[in-house]
Design a protein around this nucleic acid. Sequence first.
DNA 1: CGTTCGCTTGAGGCCGTTCAAGCGACGTGG
DNA 2: CCACGTCGCTTGAACGGCCTCAAGCGAACG
Lengths: 231, 231
Amino acid sequence: MDLHQALKSSFLFSGLTEAELSQIQAIAGIKQYAKGELIFAEGKEATCFYIVASGQVKLYKISAQGKEQILHIVNPGETFAEAVMFSGGHYPAFSETLSHSRLIHLPKEAFLQLIKQNPQLSLNMLATLSKLLRRLNRLVEELSLKDVSSRLAQYLIEQSRQTGQPTETGVQLELDASKTQLASRLGTISETLSRTLRKLKQAGIIQVKGNLITILDLDTLNEMASGAKYD
Amino acid sequence: MDLHQALKSSFLFSGLTEAELSQIQAIAGIKQYAKGELIFAEGKEATCFYIVASGQVKLYKISAQGKEQILHIVNPGETFAEAVMFSGGHYPAFSETLSHSRLIHLPKEAFLQLIKQNPQLSLNMLATLSKLLRRLNRLVEELSLKDVSSRLAQYLIEQSRQTGQPTETGVQLELDASKTQLASRLGTISETLSRTLRKLKQAGIIQVKGNLITILDLDTLNEMASGAKYD
DNA sequence: CGTTCGCTTGAGGCCGTTCAAGCGACGTGG
DNA sequence: CCACGTCGCTTGAACGGCCTCAAGCGAACG
């Protein structure tokens, strides 16, 4: 996927004319990153925002004790750190590649000029930020009000909706990151995730083979995701 | 504060001409709410967003077990539920007045038209959403990575910066809501908050008199807020 | 073949919640 | 004016979910 293609495939730029895309392309750059490379640190001065052309990026926070909480995993075609253009001059979290990645970077000031001139771009950006808000809203809800089982159940359901393959026994899904990363995303640690998976497996709700999971009992899983207690 | 004044004093409408303000005023309505009144329920179809003219509003989620997590407390001049205009047709949380309040409501569709025609309004809205994102980012960080003592310490520090009064012994601040509400905002319950306050009091870090709190040892409080463990 | 890495499993402990009771302030009605 | 209810807050005891620490295991890789 080249720069032009990548820009075109991103939601943020949908509905723009070729001429407008060219304007954006003119200020964009692309760069390769190795796996596990730091893109920016929390608190660092923000100069640009990013689009993932290929690979995978995680946004995360770290506690004083070293525990990590993943805020978001960014997949190809998606943007991140958009919000730095409109408030605050510093990145609010850490960002790191999960695999070999190619990232398009767009300088903050130049892009801000384009937004001011382009109403459609403004509206797309508003929609993008709104979606982020909803996602974070749900993350807060999960962390504060639900236990690990609920969060895992909810994640499995969502993942199965997006990438699930029906099989004889149930819907099969593939974890989109390592179990350690998943744990961090669910606001817990790998040990606890491992135990929780085992619990669901022993209860006959799911089946686990490496990072392939088959949902055997969707009804019970739905109940758990809603926060009901499970014995 | 009348409707025109309230609109004018809101950040969202800063930098607009009188003519533009009139356009907004034309589609706005105002309504009185008693204390504890529900403004909208989570999942209800979203028809408009709101500005607080007077009073106080809480946005919150509720777990299946009945535990409440406050996402945000909205004060006069501030807006809420803006994001419903750009993504999703349903309110993502509950909303309820904390005191007798007057709220301006702006119908979603009509306001969207104004935004499309007004670049400055778009930019203001982008800035508003960005701030919300930052706030939620921090809430996630606190809930996931910090214990109750840290969260309380951070809250006290922020509150003292905003509304603190210097006294002989230290900075005095007033809790902007009941302790039960504060607990919900900090992601805990009133019992735990009560115990945590007592712990800080006994350690000589703060002094508590009703909802007046004096910070005696800001240095230690800062350490606690950063997430360092306290013995 | 040794090392590293991701994952799993167990034991132990802590933080925060749940359940329960008590207290003072406040408002209402007898 | 007092009795009684409610409400917000506090305190105690006990439980439980999740984290910490520690060890072991298989797979990948140099």
